[in-house]
């Protein structure tokens, strides 16, 4: 649905985005992660036709914004963390304006349906300026989807939201994905993305350093498995026993359990377990440590920013 080829953007001497080849499949949620200053917003602004690329090519639903910006705009909805609302309009007036501005007939039914979807129907006749931050954010999403775009570009949509509003946002995005919308959402708060992203792209210093499903990238980049061993006291005996296993590295006692790296394969784990038991270690639990988006990011990122 969204593809970029060698996408590059310079601001003066600074190269904010460098040769990014993005591939966002249709009807998926694509998480765009990276530290502040990694180039996420610049990339999103280029995809959203707000910024001209210095070099490279963008295709949104097969259209290039440089050739057909209006065609691309018809297909995308954009939301930034500033929301961009008119405080002096009523909620329904605001949506009606954006319907008209996108050449869509602004029927009452349509506006009410959208307001129900973002759970703002009860604020229909309220001034936009009187909404809470969470409501403003939901209205921003309503604005972005009121003309039914095929692609949603969301830049840090959850920044400044409370946990309940974040959960509501997550559910809303899943609903939109299930309805067939392709969503590209950027964030530097990884926990908010890990629950619902089908694919992720990791950016650092303007480069896309990894791209794919979280599982795929974890497997691609993993050089050793992290294991967790829970034992009864004393832990020293277990550490001693593990020292004899050649595939085990970086053994460390962390609070109530022992963590270690394992360079072997999954099939080798029962042998390790057996060795521990034979050495008289009172094993309570022995399992691979589950990895999430945060681990993936920490593994890939050096933390450098532009």
């Amino acid at each position: 649905m969204i593809e970029t080829f060698g996408l590059t953007r310079k601001y003066g001497k600074l190269t904010a985005v460098r040769n990014v080849d993005l591939h966002v499949p249709e009807k998926t949620i694509y998480g765009f992660i990276g530290p502040n200053g990694a180039g996420k917003t610049t990339t999103l602004r280029m995809l959203g036709t707000l910024l001209r690329p210095t070099d490279g090519r963008i295709l949104v639903d097969g259209l290039d914004p440089a050739d057909d910006p209006a065609g691309v705009r018809r297909r995308i909805g954009f939301l930034s963390d500033t929301f961009g609302l008119y405080d002096d309009l009523l909620v329904w007036e605001y949506l009606e304006y954006f319907c008209g501005a996108h050449n869509v007939e602004p029927t009452t039914e349509k506006i009410d349906t959208i307001l129900h979807l973002v759970q703002l129907y009860h604020k229909r006749d309220e001034y936009v300026g009187r909404l809470s931050r969470g409501m403003r954010q939901r209205l921003g999403i309503a604005r972005a989807i009121v003309y039914e775009p095929r692609v949603l570009l969301l830049d840090e949509p959850a920044s400044g939201l409370d946990p309940i509003a974040r959960i509501a946002l997550r559910d809303l995005l899943k609903t939109l994905r299930d309805r067939g919308t392709t969503i590209l959402v950027s964030s530097h708060i990884l926990t908010e993305l890990s629950d619902f992203c089908d694919t992720v792209g990791v950016m650092e210093l303007g480069r896309l350093i990894a791209q794919g499903s979280i599982k795929e990238i974890l497997e691609q980049t993993r050089t050793q498995m992290r294991l967790v061993l829970e034992v009864l006291e004393p832990k020293a005996k277990a550490v001693e026993a593990l020292a004899d296993v050649p595939q085990v590295v970086d053994v460390a006692v962390v609070k109530e359990h022992i963590e270690m790296g394992f360079t072997g394969k999954r099939e080798d784990l029962p042998a390790v377990h057996k060795k521990l038991v034979e050495a008289g270690v009172p094993v309570v639990a022995f399992y691979p440590k589950p990895e999430n988006l945060e681990d993936l990011f920490l593994r890939l990122s050096t933390g450098a920013t532009n």
């Binding site: 036709t49 707000l50 018809r74 961009g84």
Partner: peptide
């Protein structure tokens, strides 16, 4: 200043009508 400029630029009615 109100950060609505970007969203106006994104509307499909085009800059001339706007």
């Amino acid at each position: 200043e109100r950060a609505t400029y970007d969203f106006q630029r994104l509307v499909t009615m085009g800059p001339w009508r706007l």
